[in-house]
């Protein structure tokens, strides 16, 4: 859900790069866990700057100073999937779509979803070398609990002069 950046000041504050859609919601997801299993709580101090508390033996230990904060630089923070609120109807967490088995409407197995991306032009699924827009037309069925999605492979628009004209325009 985020990664700890450089220390901020001398009082143990750190820059925290949040990968949450709404960074303000990050503290509400419960404890953040790092790769070594340490648990942290956090509180936003100002924009992009957070106060971290390590949870140990039921105690909340604030990161005391800059030296301690420096030791946390580049620590990746995760949360339990169960702590995320359930999505709305016809809405899916990108992480849930990853790994689902893909079947075509005529029953052909295309393998698992290897990536889910959004570069500002809408979400699309990467299935091996195939890239499919995440639309109702292309992905008519999504069954996260069942671990599979159904896809309708789109056709390609072909116009007679197609590529030849494209290269001529580019040359001009």
């Amino acid at each position: 859900m985020g990664v700890v950046g450089r220390p901020h000041g001398v009082r143990g504050l750190v820059h925290l790069h949040s990968y949450a859609a709404d960074p303000a919601a990050l503290p509400s997801y419960g404890p953040l866990v790092d790769e070594r299993g340490r648990q942290f709580r956090m509180r936003w101090h100002s924009e992009g700057v957070a106060e971290l508390f390590e949870m140990a033996d039921g105690k909340r230990l604030r990161v005391p100073d800059r030296t301690a904060a420096e030791k946390l630089v580049n620590t990746r923070l995760y949360i339990e999937r169960a702590s995320l609120p359930p999505p709305d109807a016809d809405e899916f967490y990108l992480s849930d779509l990853q790994g689902l088995q893909v079947m075509t409407v005529d029953g052909r197995d295309l393998g698992p979803v290897t990536g889910v991306h959004d570069h500002g032009g809408g979400v699309y699924l990467e299935i091996g070398t195939l890239l499919l827009p995440f639309t109702k037309a292309c992905v008519p069925g999504v069954d996260v609990a069942g671990g599979r999605i159904t896809v309708a492979l789109p056709a390609e628009v072909v116009v007679a002069e197609d590529r030849a004209e494209a290269s001529r325009d580019t040359a001009a």
Binding site: S18, Y19, A20, A21, F92, F134, T135, V139
Partner: peptide
């Protein structure tokens, strides 16, 4: 990073 990002079918 996917984080808690959600997708709606277009």
């Amino acid at each position: 990073h996917s984080g808690d990002k959600k997708a709606k079918r277009g």
